[in-house]
């Protein structure tokens, strides 16, 4: 456990809490992609099945349970409690375009051809593209609420810190997880354009709107 990993996990948690707070306080999930949130719930579910088979640490177990709980609460807020505020019209990304290639790839490129390992691989590949419906929605409507951009910022920060974590682990423990690293790099690249807009607009007090 190193400082990049801890800060990465905290950023990830903070992102999910920011999103829940936004929905809870405004009683609205306008501008949030329900499809991205379903994908994240699927990511955590397929990755954390090892809660039942392996014990890593108290930290690991507790964080996994919190992530699952936050993720399912968010999905419930969007499709249950506040579904009348959900903008399904603009959440029109076709999920099969992500799910079909990700499923295929997880069968082809994995560490072990076992059900749990294939599901873990699926979750890693899926996480790298799960934010695309949200980014697609923002590009379609041309704007995002400032609080939504804070959510995306912390999600992107988490990815960037995990890259630093892997570089650190590579040098200190000779740890190298090729599947996670390649997917992590891909995932981080998706945030670059957003980071640019966040720094040049949101941090200067302007709303994120696309020309």
């Amino acid at each position: 456990m190193n400082v990049f990993r801890i800060l990465g996990d905290v950023s990830h948690l903070l992102a999910m809490i920011i999103l829940l707070l936004k929905i809870w306080r405004s009683k609205s999930c306008a501008g949030i992609s329900g499809k991205s949130q379903i994908l994240f719930a699927l990511v955590f579910t397929t990755r954390y099945l090892d809660l039942l088979t392996n014990f890593i640490s108290i930290y690991n177990t507790v964080m996994k349970i919190i992530f699952l709980a936050c993720s399912y609460t968010t999905v419930y807020m969007i499709y249950g409690k506040y579904r009348n505020t959900f903008d399904s019209e603009n959440d029109s990304f076709r999920l099969e375009f992500l799910l079909v290639p990700v499923t295929g790839l997880s069968f082809l490129e994995n560490y072990n051809f076992t059900p749990l390992e294939i599901l873990w691989t699926f979750s890693i590949y899926l996480e790298s593209v799960a934010i695309l419906p949200q980014l697609f929605m923002i590009s379609k409507t041309g704007e995002a609420e400032t609080i939504t951009t804070h959510y995306l910022f912390f999600l992107g920060l988490y990815r960037t810190l995990y890259l630093a974590n892997w570089i650190w682990r590579y040098h200190t423990e000779s740890f190298y997880d090729q599947i996670a690293v390649v997917s992590g790099v891909v995932q981080t690249i998706f945030y670059c354009d957003f980071f640019y807009l966040y720094v040049t607009k949101v941090l200067k007090g302007k709303k994120l709107s696309l020309p």
């Binding site: 890593i56 996994k64 873990w120 000779s174 996670a180």
Partner: peptide, 10 residues
Amino acid sequence: IIAKTPHDEL
């Protein structure tokens, strides 16, 4: 140098 299983990251 390869990843260890079980996976220890979140």
